[in-house]
Amino acid sequence: MPGNTPRSGTGVEADGRRSAEDLLALARGGDGEAFRALVEPYRRELQVHCYRILGSVHDAEDVLQETLLAAWRGIGDYEQRSSTRTWLYRIATNRCLNALRADSRRLRERAAPKPEVPLPEPSRRRSEPSWLEPYPDVLLDQIADHQPGPEARYEVRESVSLAFLAALQLLPARQRAVLVLRDVLGFRASEVATMLDTTANAVTSALRRARGALTHELPSVAAPLPNSPRERRIVADFSRAFEAGDVDAIVALLTDDAWLTMPPLPLEYHGLDAIRHFLATVVLCDGRRHVLVPTRANGQPAFGYYLRDPRSPILHAHGLLVLTVSGDRIDALTRFHDTALMAMFGLPRSLRDSFEVDSGH
């Protein structure tokens, strides 16, 4: 079995077309380049798998690194009773479950920002995850492009939608893992049982309970295809209304039972009246104006959210705004306050009013 640190080898450099069998044999002999070539095709999908279970991009990356290190250390014991992909998913899933059991992990709570203005009384105070973070579509493309056709890409994005992610986080950890492995990734019950060291009957039972719980949490109306004419029209109308500070025009684009949330703040505003009041008294109060820079997160339209300063040409980031589109309307507005997330989306912390990046920041 190789040691803790991969050593550089010559086999992979000599021939980039080596088979998985060749790479595995070299990796077992301590060739770090062969190991990297063996696992690299699965890196992004493993990160997304960890993200689905944990709800946090940063925690998913941490667990991915733990997974790859564990795979390197344990490759000598890999008996090839399953594919390399299945073996890696087994390690990743159990590392995620260990993370969820560890009270010391930061994924359990996120520090809530201090509001700049008093917030109105919410429709409810939620118990949903404060650690939920958005995931850049540019990274999802690295997975979706391996699957032909727009329908396959749509399914990849649906399985990381914010509504699906938030609902997943409400499930017990093992139910969460079972549902992702079975319904999202398509592993057989027997394979999942082996991964979780349980029985196929237990997997089937957990999947039935998880499906039942999610039925009440997910939207009943399908979203339009990403970047379809219908979605582009909704996004353009929203951006125009928001930048103009037109509360009524924004509200006209929402479904009657729309939600507004602001992770990690445990507050939810439900319905047109509550959202209209919030926009008028908080987001667009006192003539505040914003600039929205389009991006995509979790298969959904999103914007970098910048506040105009009447005393300066510099626009300062105030987080990320994600739209959940349902049919011809917007079903949810989710604003992530953490400006540290902006870099993952290729967005700066500040912009000049001409939309050029402020090179001093």
Rank of each mutant, 00 (worst) to 15 (best):
R90H: 08
R90F: 01
R90W: 03
R90V: 00
I91P: 00
I91H: 09
A92E: 11
N94G: 07
N94H: 02
R95G: 01
R95Q: 08
C96Q: 07
C96Y: 06
C96E: 09
C96D: 09
L97K: 03
L97R: 01
L97G: 01
N98Q: 14
A99W: 02
L100N: 03
L100S: 03
L100C: 02
R101P: 01
R101D: 13
A102F: 08
D103F: 08
S104P: 00
R106N: 11
R108I: 05
E109M: 10
E109K: 11
E109R: 14
E109Y: 13
A111R: 13
A111I: 08
A112R: 05
P113F: 06
P113T: 03
K114S: 15
K114C: 12
P115D: 09
V117G: 06
V117L: 15
V117M: 13
P118A: 11
L119R: 05
L119Q: 04
L119A: 06
P120H: 06
E121Y: 11
P122F: 12
S123F: 00
S123A: 12
S123P: 04
R125F: 05
S127L: 15
P129E: 12
E133P: 01
E133D: 04
P134M: 04
Y135C: 04
Y135L: 01
P136N: 04
D137Q: 06
V138I: 13
L139Q: 10
L140G: 08
L140H: 09
Q142P: 00
A144Y: 03
D145V: 13
D145G: 09
D145W: 11
H146T: 09
H146E: 13
Q147R: 13
G149K: 02
G149S: 06
A152D: 07
A152H: 05
R153I: 04
R153H: 14
Y154I: 11
V156E: 12
R157M: 12
R157G: 07
R157D: 10
E158D: 08
S159F: 09
V160K: 02
S161I: 06
L162V: 12
A163M: 03
L165H: 04
L165A: 10
L165N: 07
A166W: 10
A166D: 15
A167T: 07
L168T: 05
Q169T: 02
Q169W: 01
Q169P: 01
L170M: 15
L171A: 02
L171E: 05
P172A: 09
R174I: 10
R176L: 15
V178F: 02
V178I: 15
L179W: 13
L179S: 00
L181C: 05
R182N: 08
D183E: 03
D183C: 03
V184W: 12
L185F: 14
G186Q: 11
G186L: 10
A189I: 08
A189S: 14
A189H: 12
S190M: 00
S190D: 11
